[in-house]
Design a protein around this nucleic acid. Structure first.
Length: 809
RNA sequence: GCCGAAGUGGCGGAAUUGGUAGACGCGCGCGACUCAAAAUCGCGUUUCGCAAGAAGUGAGGGUUCGAUUCCCUCCUUCGGCACCA
């Protein structure tokens, strides 16, 4: 009987006691393989069935790679800082540390019950001082190299969470966490200079070009490129009429400069006051104030209808001296380009809408276009020295002209801004900076790290970090002059902690350095990284930035962290909706493990559908897998190997199609694992077992090979049956089976006969049948003759080993 | 609006250097075993049709001896971005 409970406990214990999954730091002969999961946030809800999907995939690969002779690093840890634990503290008074540790304990036992081959000696927890000491070290590393700086800046402020958010955490003008409206607020905040690495930086490949050398889903790369948002064009100076001052604009279409008919400033632009005339002042101020009150969300709601006000001022077009009225409008954003534009209503859709609404002039400067707003096709007109040129040539010529005449220059602009990392929260890594009245901003000396979180804290949010209220934390002495000073009271965005954790795994217990250099160079980069697609921009972009920073300053030799990336699809509830507590449709992995076992859960999640696709859970499907495992178990109990009469280890002399079935299975499973097609690997194993059941016999070598193929997917039952058929050591130590290509091809094939491309008949024949014989035999067939009657065969097509197609008329 | 992914039986899905559409699993039907049930095993299961046969991979066209696969037009769903000049 297949007793999954006792089997799974038995082998998990065996693996642990025999230290089977330790990555070997000292081995120099085996090639290394670093297989990494996105480490989870240990939430109070416990493990979700979505977690083991990715974990099973990396576990299959890890076990497979070990059997192929690799030295595998496969670690797990906890992304443990974050708001939920702190919010719980606010509500219930329980310290976040306590909540977090409790959740970690739950996650640990849940994950361990699934039999993943993690090297638990390297377990990390971002909220432990042993870890965040190095997060703080990383901050100082960036600071010392000019990549971390403080500035007063308008920031996204969530009034409900009482903290600043990164641009990436603002979704539709709302806080991604609590969905309350996000306000703009000026605050003094820490930033990381991610923009330094957009383009190649010395020897270090940039965030854009680096994408070309990594094996990631194309859609993820495109998202990253879009997020970076590179635009090439020019900045152009327009003289302001009556003032000795320039208004600088950014444009990607300098070719359309002769078509500019008005100018627009963002309402927050510093020139607004200056250019506004007395007659227009009241109206302008009213508009500016209205805009200030509007949140991003409201601005988006108004998207359809353009609004704006004429300032009364004029600017001079540098190419033709035209006087252009200067307007203010909120469709021009202060945060992008220069916060000012030249408007070309003939060739920009937004400017066109605006000009139509306010009756402004529209001058066409490109003819023969399919779409006037597209940058394709067309010939310049009404543009003096550009007339007759194509758009691309005109852009180049105009930029040259601007540069020669000192009124503009070539310019590339990016959407990506520097990363704002300050958070006014408690449950995060404290920023290791001290403010001294005499010495100013002083980094905490490395020897004094970690700056630990205090315990005398009131968690109620005040708009300042709860750390401000802690006497023990806040009051310190200046490391330079020893006078009384204040410690920075903000903590770091939790994304900082999770952007470098994969470096820590290579040397997780080192208390001298972030990780020993030789181990960084031994294990990095990560060979395979698996996790949800929701981290497409944030986490992955930040991690790449950190890697590039370390590379640039000589700490590591790779400049991309994750060579191969795969996303798992989402697992939906049986009803096709997202699993959620409120809908009551959540599947708890513990229940599945309890009822059917870890092997069933693992295999079912791999069998559900293509790995990267969302699929609905189906309880009947888990039963199907359970039945499959029971069937295997029964087969191995009942089968009598003494009946097997083949002598060779690869079963090439076994009877009844067994060699082909076996070698096809080895080939299919091997290739499917390599290509992340776990669902079809499993179906091939089912085909194999169906075949064997039908035959009622299986040669022993085939039985052994099959268990090896099964072992990465369902390791517990594989170990158990491996023992049952007489082995004393772990199946994980075996070598991965090899297939013989010639044995994967059946001697006899089913030759398909088509008439006019339609299947009419088929017959079994040797795979090597020559064309003439095949066609002659096909024509003999009764069914085929019926179709040929009274007609003429005008063409005969033969695909060796596959089909004959007779074209008749 | 833009970018991306995807549309195949009752369901999840398989098959793409163009070559038997529906592998494998679920569900369902029939049968065997059983006093009975469960489990298990066997057979069947795209639709219409008694059959021969016909239709069929979101819709419509095209290329081809042959298209789920390639090309064009369109529709739908999901995911991401969103006044980025």
């Amino acid at each position: 009987m297949y007793d999954h409970k006792s089997i799974e406990v038995k082998w998990q214990k065996y693996w642990e006691e025999n230290n089977l999954f330790k990555a070997d730091d000292r081995n120099t002969t085996k090639p290394k393989y670093y297989a990494l999961d996105m480490f989870p946030y240990p939430s109070g809800a416990g493990l979700h069935v979505g977690h083991p999907e990715g974990y099973t995939a990396t576990d299959i690969i890890s076990r497979y790679k070990r059997m192929n002779g690799y030295n595998v690093l496969h670690p797990m840890g906890w992304d443990a800082f974050g708001l939920p634990a702190e919010n719980y503290a606010i509500k219930m008074g329980t310290p976040p540390e306590e909540t977090t540790n409790k959740n970690i304990a739950t996650f640990t036992s849940q994950i361990k019950s699934l039999g993943f081959s993690y090297d638990w000696d390297r377990e990390i927890n971002t909220s432990s001082p042993d870890y965040y000491k190095w997060t703080q070290w990383f901050f100082l590393f960036l600071y010392k190299n000019g990549l971390a700086y403080k500035k007063n800046a308008p920031v996204n402020w969530c009034n409900s969470c009482q903290t600043v958010l990164a641009n990436e955490q603002v979704v539709n003008g709302e806080c991604e966490r609590c969905q309350s409206e996000v306000e703009q607020k000026n605050m003094n905040q820490w930033f990381f200079k991610i923009t330094e690495f957009i383009e190649d930086n010395g020897e270090t490949s940039g965030l854009i070009s680096g994408l070309d050398k990594i094996d990631w889903p194309e859609s993820t790369k495109i998202s990253q490129r879009n997020w970076i948002g590179k635009s090439e064009g020019a900045e152009v100076d327009f003289k302001i009429d009556d003032f000795d001052e320039n208004m600088r604009v950014f444009t990607t279409r300098p070719d359309t400069l002769f078509g500019a008919t008005y100018m627009v400033l963002a309402p927050e632009h510093s020139l607004v006051q200056k250019v506004t005339t007395e007659e227009q002042r009241a109206e302008v101020e009213k508009y500016v104030n209205e805009t200030k009150k509007k949140t991003d969300l409201q601005r988006q709601e108004d998207e359809k209808e353009k609004t704006g006000v004429f300032t009364g001022g004029y600017a001079i077009n540098p190419v033709n001296g035209e006087k252009l009225p200067i307007w203010i409008a909120d469709y021009v954003l202060m945060g992008y380009g220069t916060g000012a534009i030249m408007a070309v209503p003939a060739h920009d859709e937004r400017d066109h809408d605006f000009a139509q609404k306010f009756g402004l002039e529209i001058i066409d400067v490109i003819g023969d276009m399919e779409d006037r707003f597209q940058k394709t096709g067309g010939v310049m007109k009404n543009s003096q020295f550009l007339d007759g040129l194509g758009i691309d040539d005109a852009i180049q010529k105009m930029i040259e002209w601007l540069e020669e005449n000192n009124c503009g220059e070539r310019k590339t602009t990016y959407r990506l801004r520097d990363w704002l990392v300050s958070r006014q929260r408690f449950w995060g890594a404290p920023i290791p900076i001290i403010y001294c009245d005499d010495c100013g901003e002083v980094p905490v000396p490395e020897a004094d790290l970690p700056v630990t979180l205090p315990t005398d804290v009131d968690f109620k949010p005040t708009g300042e970090s709860p750390l401000v209220g802690s006497k023990t934390f806040h009051d310190v002495t200046c490391p330079k002059c020893n006078k009384a000073a204040k410690c920075e009271s903000d903590t770091m965005d939790t994304f900082v902690c999770s952007s470098w954790y994969y470096f820590r795994f290579v040397d997780a217990n080192n208390n001298q350095e972030i990780a020993a250099k030789e181990l960084l160079n031994k294990w990095m980069p990560v060979d395979l990284y698996v996790g949800g697609a929701e981290h497409t921009v944030l986490h992955l972009l930040y991690s790449r930035f950190f890697t590039k920073a370390l590379h640039k300053f000589g700490y590591i030799s790779c400049d991309e962290p994750f060579m191969k990336l795969r996303h798992q699809g989402m697992i939906l509830a049986e009803d096709g909706r997202k699993m959620s507590k409120s809908l009551g449709n959540v599947i708890n992995p513990d229940d599945v493990v309890n009822e059917y076992g870890a092997d069933t859960l693992r295999m079912y999640e791999m069998f559900m559908g293509p790995f990267d696709q969302s699929v609905s859970w189906n309880t009947k499907g888990t039963e199907g897998i359970y039945r499959f495992l029971q069937r295997i178990h029964r087969l191995y109990e009942e089968i009598d190997f003494t009946k097997c009469d083949c002598k060779k280890g690869d079963c090439s002399d076994a009877p009844k199609g067994m060699p082909q079935m076996l070698h096809k299975t080895i080939k299919k499973v091997t290739e499917d694992i390599e290509n992340f097609r776990f669902n079809t690997a499993i179906s091939q194993m089912m085909i194999f077992i169906n075949h064997v059941s039908k035959e009622g016999t299986m040669p022993k070598p085939a039985a052994e090979i099959f268990l090896k193929l099964l072992s990465p997917f369902a390791p517990h039952i594989a170990e158990e049956l491996w023992e049952k058929i007489g082995h004393t050591d772990s199946i994980g130590k075996e070598e991965w089976p090899k297939y013989v290509e010639a044995l994967t091809i059946d001697d006899e094939i089913e030759l398909v006969i088509q008439v006019n491309g339609k299947l009419r008949d088929k017959f079994n024949v040797s795979k090597d049948i020559p064309k003439e014989d095949a066609i002659a035999q096909a024509k003999e067939l009764e069914k085929i003759q019926n179709f040929l009657e009274g007609k003429k065969v005008i063409k005969e097509i033969f695909v060796p080993g596959k089909l004959v197609n007779l074209v008749v008329k």
